[in-house]
Design a protein around this nucleic acid. Structure first.
Lengths: 268, 268
DNA sequence: CAGTGGTCTAGACCACACT
DNA sequence: GTGTGGTCTAGACCACTGC
């Protein structure tokens, strides 16, 4: 009873569609349920900036009308987007575009927890920008960010401290183009998660990330910045963060001191 | 139109129910949707062993009839259980109790990946049981397993090797009672994931786990078993694994060599 | 073919938040 | 009260599996 009037999608719900058996090439019929197609359309609204972080999206009934499907089908699309942390539902109020600014998800990607288990006891981390400079991508950084070696990138180095104890040393690399205008001052002045700044100032929303973790020993520079010794083993946490469409937008390498904190992970 | 005839649950769907405003104590109304109540009932069937690992559960229509609700309500309960990896849906065939024996989830809880990224290239790990003995719980182990200090526990030590290179040294502690009869021989002889053995031999199914990760240096014993040096930093991975009802059933401490492998984590 | 899970609909009603 | 998301239903039809 409904068809998405968009480009490449087929119309699995139409009764007249003669799919399958005929002489079509065997490139997988690529059947895609209606709610998946709607999810793609909503993803485009998010990506294009039609729906901005922390803003409300249209109500389920409005979307159902816009897409000419039932409310239930829209619901299922929203359900999946909410499960992926792209949207946040709030009963009685509406559905909102997720953001990194909300307090309860402030450190969504930071898994380092104090030994006492209470992340609030020590308050927010003190952040100190050590360096922020423009340079050309190494092959390693270029590969991680899907750029070409030599493309302009930004490199930031900072130290995070808890209760005035330096605990994390991070180097991070950002593609030059989307982050044109980012300076050490703006990073220092901004009061909130770095990913929130990326959203509000550069329109870049980090959606998911992958981390590779190893145990390493620090070099002399790293020792000095973390006020530790060359014999103290550290966690090396290498992160690639992605925006919409699985586009990598940040490469980051953190060194974590784990004598008073640990990296927490939940296996499901 | 439907009511669960089970114990403590209220009946939010009944029209005649006069909830809320009246003189009831303010212990939170504890409204729980029907599908959640059904989820609890299904959880009981899993826990009690009525539905065994890898077996099919009744069809959605059967369950709907049994619980006197619509198919859609049962579906929503199953959806959540499937999202928690307790059930596996297979279109056209049925819904099955998840297990640790299936090949594609064989190492669901092991996040150590070879640097080349291809977990299959090196094949399955070679496992060597070093030790398996009965002893009394230390306070630390007792706390992790929700026992009392001094209660009987099993301790197992083993080494995992990839391509004949020892890479993981694990110590693990199991509560004595549920694992009565576990010996080094049975661990050695069993060909498959340890958690699969726990399911088939002891009826203990691990449902989720938490890991605390740190960077450490090995002691002399550990060096010898991993054939490494005291200056090589290692990942210390401390895991607590839970069965149904968030009951802890295993405490495990792994030391991971990360020169040719890394611990992979996905942030969502 | 029958049986299973998967999709979609239309409509009723509940819980919650604002005004 | 109005509008939002959340639950529940009943029924139709589609897609996949196996007999």
């Amino acid at each position: 009873m409904a068809a998405i009037t968009s480009s490449l999608s087929d119309k699995p719900a139409s009764a007249e569609a003669e799919t399958g058996t005929a002489g079509a090439p065997s490139l997988t019929p690529a059947f895609s349920p209606l709610y998946q197609q709607i999810k793609v359309l909503m993803l485009q609204s998010l990506q294009s900036g039609e729906w901005k972080p922390s803003a409300a999206i249209p109500s389920e009934l409005e979307l159902a009308a816009r897409f000419k499907v039932s409310q239930g089908t829209v619901r299922k699309a929203i359900d999946e987007l909410a499960a992926e942390n792209l949207l946040v539902r709030r009963q009685g109020k509406g559905t909102f575009v997720a953001t990194h600014s909300e307090h309860h998800v402030q450190y969504r990607f930071l898994k380092l927890i104090p030994d006492n288990g209470d992340a609030n006891s020590e308050g927010p981390a003190q952040r100190k920008i050590i360096d922020c400079k423009r340079l050309r991508a190494s092959t390693e950084v270029a590969r991680a960010l899907a750029l070409r070696a030599g493309d302009p990138v930004l490199q930031v180095r900072r130290v995070l401290s808890f209760a005035d104890v330096p605990t994390i040393l991070e180097d991070l690399w950002l593609p030059g183009a989307p982050f044109k205008g980012l300076t050490a001052e703006r990073l220092t002045d901004y009061d909130g998660p770095m990913y929130a700044l990326f959203e509000t100032e550069f329109g870049v929303r980090m959606v998911r990330a992958e981390e590779k973790i190893r145990a390493v020993l620090p070099d002399a520079d790293q020792c000095a910045l973390l006020k530790t010794t060359a014999q103290t083993p550290l966690l090396s946490v290498e992160r690639t963060a992605f925006t919409y469409n699985d586009t990598p937008m940040e490469m980051r390498r953190g060194l974590y001191l784990t004598d008073t904190h640990y990296y927490r992970n939940a296996l499901n």
